[in-house]
């Protein structure tokens, strides 16, 4: 069964007289029940707009969306009873304590902390020692956990998490994803958006999005499989000069820095090693190293951006 469907969604915002910003341009995808579905793209790609339409907070200019089989326009009241939502800025009352925040959100969703404690126990237990503390005094990671507890307290069928890991450090991010995977086992459908490409692999399926358009929807593996050309990782002692030399070769399609290596793709897959060796030799680069590499999500994202002309 499909938990969320989005078909031909269009969302515009007025920008001055007669002109509009096209935030979401004809986006379609669907999410299966019990899936972790990631919407991955940079700021301004339209992630938040999609989430707000699905959470019935915004009306779209076009297209049809359903959540739990219910129409987001017509049945917004029913949808609001069923979903959990954690907006981009963790929406907590800074002057209320951890406990007071949780109690408040439980009550407005017509439930109590005790009733659904099992569901949040895992997450809430980590912040419970600080339950008297004001939310404003929590660290980023702890705020994130409290916000998640608040979004979960009424046992929603679909959980919408808008950039839950932005501004949170690597350790908390990792712990957060572990929590999402445990929630998945409870049968909750999770839609999560993130600008971090490295989080893509933690989702069951992902939609890559840029400038309001979907670049691709697939499993993370499926997306990297779509990348047909061989990719090479190259490094030397002088990385910046090396990149300029590589880009100067007309046979090179793209060269992007990736950590300690440059990822290089050629227009035609022939004699790539020889070409790279030649660049290293002619440029007199020390400690040169060339090896084939499997493309990651970020490689695919950049290639798709280029292909579909959504950069700039």
């Amino acid at each position: 069964m499909q938990s969320v469907t989005v078909s031909h969604l269009i969302k515009n915002y007025p920008a001055g007289k007669k002109s509009v910003v096209e935030a979401v341009r004809d986006v379609s995808f669907s999410v299966d029940k019990g899936e972790i579905f990631g919407i991955i793209g940079p700021d301004g790609a339209g992630k938040t707009s999609i989430f707000r339409v699905l959470t019935t907070l915004l009306l779209a200019e076009g297209g049809k969306c359903t959540v739990d089989g219910l129409d987001v326009v017509k049945d917004y009241k029913e949808i609001r009873k069923r979903i959990g939502y954690m907006p981009g800025k963790f929406s907590l009352y800074q002057d209320l304590s951890v406990q007071e925040n949780l109690e408040f959100f439980a009550t407005i969703f017509n439930t109590t902390i005790e009733k659904n404690y099992d569901l949040i126990k895992d997450i809430y237990a980590q912040i419970e020692p600080f339950k008297e503390r004001k939310a404003g005094q929590l660290s980023g990671g702890m705020k994130q956990k409290l916000a998640l507890s608040c979004a979960l307290i009424h046992k929603p069928t679909v959980l919408f998490l808008d950039e839950p890991t932005t501004g949170v450090d690597a350790v908390s991010r990792k712990e957060f994803w572990e929590m999402l995977h445990r929630l998945k086992t409870q049968g909750i459908t999770i839609l999560v958006s993130t600008p971090y490409m490295d989080e893509a692999g933690l989702c069951d399926r992902i939609a890559l999005i840029q400038k309001g358009k979907i670049l691709s929807v697939n499993t993370p593996k499926g997306i990297t499989k779509e990348f047909k050309k061989p990719m090479w990782a190259v490094r030397s002692a002088e990385m910046f000069r090396l990149m300029n030399s590589i880009l100067a070769d007309p046979a090179v399609e793209s060269c992007y820095p990736f950590g300690q290596y440059h990822h290089v793709v050629f227009h035609n897959a022939e004699n790539e090693i020889q070409k790279l060796e030649q660049i290293i030799r002619e440029g007199n680069f020390q400690n040169g190293e060339i090896k084939p590499v499997e493309p990651g999500i970020e490689d695919c994202f950049m290639a798709l951006m280029k292909e579909q002309g959504t950069h700039g």
């Binding site: 940079p42 700021d43 932005t166 840029q210 992007y256 994202f301 950049m302 951006m305 280029k306 950069h311």
Partner: peptide
């Protein structure tokens, strides 16, 4: 924070 991967590299 939050920029696309190509822009991020241009920034670098």
């Amino acid at each position: 924070g939050g920029v696309d991967p190509v822009t991020r590299r241009e920034f670098w």
